Simulated assay, not measured.
Amino acid sequence: MATCDVCGKVVNMPYNCRHCGGTFCSEHRLPENHECPGLHNWNDPQGVFDSGFDDSVNSSGSASARSKVASKLPIDTGPGGPLAYFRGNVAYLFLVLMWATFALQFAVRAIDPQLAQSLFVLSSWNVEYVWTWFTSIFAHGGFGHIVGNSFIVFFFGPLVERYVGSRKFAILFLVSGALAGLGQVLISLAQGVPSSVVGASGAGLAILGVLTILNPDLKVYLYFILPIPIWLITAGYAFFSVLSLSTGGAPRIAHGAHLVGLLIGLAYGQYLKNNRNVSAPNRLEFGGGGGGPGGPGGPGGRRRF
């Protein structure tokens, strides 16, 4: 049994919208009957629902220009091409990039540690290396570190991507990750302790922030048994980060990056809530462990976030 997100009716056989993730009764199961945010993407004379990866169905002129560019690429970017799986699944694409960067990072480090630092690590002494603002998001400090961040991206990323579309999700992920890393570096400089950062926790906390605003009571069933509302998880991260920053505890974790990413996510979630009618599922079940964002690093050294 479940409760309809529109009318609150309890139904034995609910309908789940694959575009917005909501749960509805038979009366509100159609996208137009629950004001599905996916309706904003409808403008396709051939009746093909846009995946959200691009906006080709919204403008014939821009679609033509994009198709010309795509035709010149050495790889098939169409629905039947090798990249078809990632159309509408940018969260999983970023997950793949995280692990690919992680492997490349350690391969380069084995050959030239200084080169690896310059390519993948955002630090107080190379903040002008603009590429590290983004490569540092996908690089990580260890196996446990990337597993924890992958956990967030895999389970929660697709939910946000489903609401906002793949393009906006990609922007949210990259911008929040970059600003979180830069925020951590600036906070460290203000504290007089230069540091460096790697990891996707800033983007991960932004994802949690968006979901917390859209549906603070979203139930996360840990090990399929323990129901925890997502707002409690988010609040726990925020409390731990603020406490650690104020007391100097857990210096190896980039708490500043966590807070910057979370604030971006909360702000964007509030923007969505004020300007779009979005709905979130009532619960999320998974049995995996692995912590959330964050991990050990070193004071004055690389902080993982």
Rank of each mutant, 00 (worst) to 15 (best):
D112W: 06
L122H: 05
L119I: 08
A257V: 02
G291V: 13
G165W: 08
C7N: 01
G300R: 00
G248P: 10
G142W: 00
L205A: 00
S246Y: 13
S166K: 04
I171V: 12
V220W: 08
V278S: 05
A103P: 10
C25L: 07
I264P: 00
L182R: 06
P79Q: 11
A203K: 01
S150K: 09
I111L: 11
V197E: 08
R302Q: 13
A235N: 12
H145D: 13
W133N: 09
F224D: 15
L97D: 01
R252N: 14
Y221R: 08
R109L: 11
W125R: 15
S60V: 14
Y271L: 07
S51Q: 11
M13S: 14
P82V: 09
A203C: 01
S60D: 14
F239E: 07
A250F: 13
L226V: 15
P37S: 05
A238V: 12
F53P: 00
G47I: 01
G61D: 14
N43K: 12
A2L: 00
R87T: 08
L115I: 06
N274A: 12
G199K: 02
S59E: 10
H255K: 01
A235P: 11
L245A: 03
V197M: 05
G78Q: 10
S118I: 05
H145S: 13
A257N: 05
Y92K: 08
K219M: 15
A100W: 10
I146A: 07
Q117P: 02
A139S: 13
R162C: 01
V220F: 09
G52T: 03
V127N: 09
V10H: 13
R66Q: 15
N33L: 10
A116Q: 03
Q46S: 15
I233A: 01
T132W: 03
G88H: 09
A91C: 02
C36H: 03
Q105I: 02
N33Y: 12
C25V: 05
F106V: 01
V242R: 04
G144V: 09
D112K: 04
R283S: 14
R276V: 12
I111M: 11
